[in-house]
Design a protein around this nucleic acid. Structure first.
Lengths: 295, 295
DNA sequence: CGATCAGTTGAAGGGTCTCAACGCGAGTGG
DNA sequence: CCACTCGCGTTGAGACCCTTCAACTGATCG
């Protein structure tokens, strides 16, 4: 709403956009000197993001730097000047916002073939931080190259739009998560969402390994980490899944999904199936009727 | 419905209460400058979004359809086929997701010069619905035109990227909102955020009119609507602001911002300790280090 | 082997949800 | 014009889930 374009290269502007893309990639050398490891090219990025092969071969030789991170390493800090956006090639990240009192609010978990740092576009600085949860590597696309690339290479423009659209959709899932008042429901939704994303990556949707700690999950879901632990125990007791520290196996996927759909009850809907007596560690479905809409 | 152009010109307000909405729009400087005269071409859109004039004049004659909506009217339904993205020219919208049981989760409030419906890019259908909270109008950019426009017209590409980046940043603010467990803090953050956005639109950040109902706010904040009401009362009692139904006036902006920063735990202690109302420096009881995770 | 951290579980207290009731304004139709 | 309805907003009271503090286990590490 205020300043927009002036951030990256206001002097350049329209004229610079006519410059050949390859020329602008001189900056790659600088980046490599700054500690970026091996180099890859645009075709790899586009394939990763699922672009059509017919589009890919045209631009196969455009270089794109790559950056590898160890578990716990920081990709970018909060408030840092935003110099690039990133596409996750392998690994997992968490993005978070640190409050004035030091409270760490996890905002998203980002996996393979997803974008990182795009929310810095339009601001000069990253509004969030990102750290690797495991050994990972990302494609690095400099901000000043982004506009040119998306204009000159249609495949990249499409990929970028798709990825940001998905990122936007993901962030609304976070709201869905927190919308559920009951902590067990939040956790169930989290697991269902995770399961879907595992499936999308070609991995098993029923049995997977959590990359994030209980504290991260707790922050993401907006509850205390003890509550996450208790919720895991509850879901196990009810037979939905099996848990061993960070190994999760979903035993009854359909039932879990149904359970995950329970939301705060709308004001106009009145649950009549009231049974005040079964409220202790019991039925997998239908317990705590107060929060479940009668199905 | 009592809708008014809140903000800097209180004098003109009282008189314009009874005047037809459209007439009032013409009388306000902002709208007059933006050109209410149905200039439905790309240059209007780009100006709205803050693009540089040097970029705008080059493409001034590309037509872009416009759509007007009355208060309560639906822009697009959830699950509907996504055919376009929208840029808000005038008015306010809410986007929301309807659960299987009918619970309506509000995901965002979208105002002037912001994007709507971009999360549908990549999916064929809108993952969320959008309805107008007041009489509004939007620029309509068809999906099939979007790629071409952003490739051939650099200004549009920039504007699109910036807008989506802002949308992403906004959605993370929602998480910040829900992260604060205390309901009063959530509401305080909501008001602070709203205040900033009003200021960004050139309107008064201290006194404004809420376009959304208590229920919408409640859904957005993830609490019951009664709790929102109680939280308003609490903030008023503590002297932070004055409220009359949907009219809000912030009395102590700095104190409110400080209060909004408190995470987790009794908003009580902070709010009630205003014996000496010079209580600006408040380390919010930092005993929440437990939530800091590894780095 | 202490030290530290992640994860689990228990007990107590408090904040929020739900269920009520009430006042208020707008739209409606007799 | 007025009674009526309906939705919005407020407030009170009780139930209950979550937070907090605490202790305990097991794993990793120097």
């Amino acid at each position: 709403m205020d300043r927009m374009i002036e951030g990256q290269d206001q002097g350049a502007q329209a004229a610079s956009f006519q410059i050949d893309t390859m020329l602008r990639f001189k900056s790659v050398a600088n980046f490599a000197a700054a500690g970026v490891g091996e180099r890859s090219n645009l075709s790899g990025l586009l394939q990763l993001m699922g672009a059509e092969m017919s589009d890919v071969h045209l631009v196969a030789d455009t270089p794109v730097p790559l950056r590898s991170l160890r578990a716990g390493e920081v990709l970018f800090h909060e408030g840092e000047r935003a110099e690039a956006i990133y596409f996750v090639r392998v690994g997992t990240f968490k993005t978070f916002h640190t409050g004035a009192d030091g409270y760490e609010q996890v905002l998203s978990f980002v996996g393979r073939a997803e974008v990182l740092g795009f929310d810095a576009v339009g601001l000069q600085r990253h509004p969030t931080a990102a750290v690797a949860l495991e050994n990972s590597s990302v494609y690095v696309v400099l901000m000043r190259d982004m506009f040119a690339l998306s204009q000159h290479i249609s495949a990249f423009g499409r990929v970028l739009h798709l990825a940001t659209g998905c990122a936007l959709a993901h962030s609304s899932e976070l709201a869905d998560m927190m919308a559920a008042v009951a902590a067990e429901v939040r956790l169930a939704r989290f697991l269902v969402q995770l399961s879907k994303r595992m499936a999308a990556c070609g991995q098993s949707p029923r049995r997977f390994h959590l990359r994030m700690s209980r504290r991260d999950i707790a922050s993401y879901l907006g509850v205390a980490h003890e509550t996450v632990s208790r919720s895991f125990s509850a879901l196990v007791n009810w037979g939905y899944l099996q848990v061993n520290i960070r190994e999760v196996e979903i035993l009854k996927m359909d039932a879990l999904k149904v359970f995950a759909c329970s939301t705060r009850r709308p004001a106009d809907e009145i649950g009549r199936s009231h049974d005040a007596f079964l409220h202790l560690t019991r039925p997998p479905v239908g317990h705590r009727e107060l929060y479940n809409a009668s199905l």
